[in-house]
Nucleic acid binder design. Structure first.
Lengths: 130, 130
DNA sequence: TCAATAACAGTAATTATTATCATATTATAC
DNA sequence: GTATAATATGATAATAATTACTGTTATTGA
C-alpha cells in the first residue's frame, strides 16, 4: 500500500483534535483549521480525517446526529450526548464489555463488540444553565 | 396539532414493516410498496416512516450504516449487525439497562437512556455460508 | 353531496460526503 | 543541492440520503 507522506494540514488536524474535548464534526474541524491554513479545502479535511481513522489515530463517532463527529482520543471509552444541547462528552466509567456475553447467550452467531452511547441531560442543562 | 387522516399508503407501509424481519431502509420499503402502489413516491415513504416513528408505531435504527433502517416492532429490544453481510437482526436477550447506572456513577448530569447495538458474525456468516 | 383539509405524486432543493484532476509538496536517489 | 517519482492539495463536480415545495387527489365530517 502507498506510503503515507507528511502533510502540514494533516498534522494540524491531528493536533487540533488532540487538544479539543468538543468531538467536532468535519465541518467544525474545517472552520478551525482554516484559521491557520485559510486555503485548506473541506475535501482535504475529510480525506485526512478518514485517513487518521483508518490508521487508528483518531475515532469517528456517530450519535444518530446528522453528521459524524471525530475524537482525537483513540483509546476505547464511552460517550454521552445531551438531549437538550446536543453536546457530546466523554464518560469516565468502567468497561461494560460484559454485555457482549449477555448478548451472545442464545445467539447462534458471534458477538465481536458493541457500540454504545448514553444520552440524557449534561451537567449544565441538568442545572438549568443553557 | 393537525388530525391524522387515513391513507392506504401509510397502512401498506405499516403492514409491510410488521411482517418483515429485514429492518429495511426507506429505499427498500419504497421498492416493496411499489409492487402494490406503483405510483407511490419516495417522499411519501419518507414522510410516513417519520410520521410512524413520531407516533411510536415503529422505530428508526441507525447502525453507522449509510442509511437509516426501520423496525416495525416498537417494543424496546436490541439489534445485531453482521460485519460481513451487514444484515441487521433482532437479539433476544435480557435487558442491559443497568449500564445506565454504571455510566451515571460520577457523572454530574443525568443519564436517561442508552443506544446500543452489537456486531460480529451472524449465524450464516459464522458458519461460512454467505 | 360538499366544503375543508390532510395526503399524495412529482420534482426541486438541501446536506453530508466522496470523487476527480491539474498543480503543489514531500521524499528519495543521485 | 537537483532531478525524479509519488503522494497530497485546493477547487470543483458528483453522489447519496433526505427533506421541502406545489398543484392535484383522497378522506372526513357536516
Amino acid at each position: 500500500m502507498a506510503t503515507l507522506k507528511y502533510s502540514r494540514q494533516r498534522e494540524a488536524i491531528k493536533e487540533y483534535l488532540a487538544k479539543t474535548k468538543e468531538h467536532p464534526t468535519a465541518d467544525t474541524v474545517y472552520m478551525h483549521i482554516r484559521e491557520q491554513y485559510p486555503n485548506i479545502s473541506l475535501g482535504t479535511v475529510y480525506r485526512n480525517l478518514n485517513l487518521l481513522v483508518s490508521q487508528g489515530e483518531i475515532i469517528k463517532i456517530n450519535c444518530n446526529d446528522s453528521s459524524d463527529r471525530f475524537d482525537g482520543n483513540p483509546e476505547p471509552h464511552y460517550h454521552f450526548i445531551c438531549n437538550e444541547c446536543n453536546r457530546v462528552m466523554d464518560l469516565e466509567m468502567e468497561s461494560i464489555d460484559h454485555i457482549n456475553k449477555i448478548a451472545g447467550a442464545g445467539f447462534e452467531g458471534k458477538i465481536e463488540g458493541n457500540v454504545t452511547f448514553f444520552h440524557g441531560l449534561c451537567p449544565d442543562c441538568n442545572k438549568g444553565d443553557h
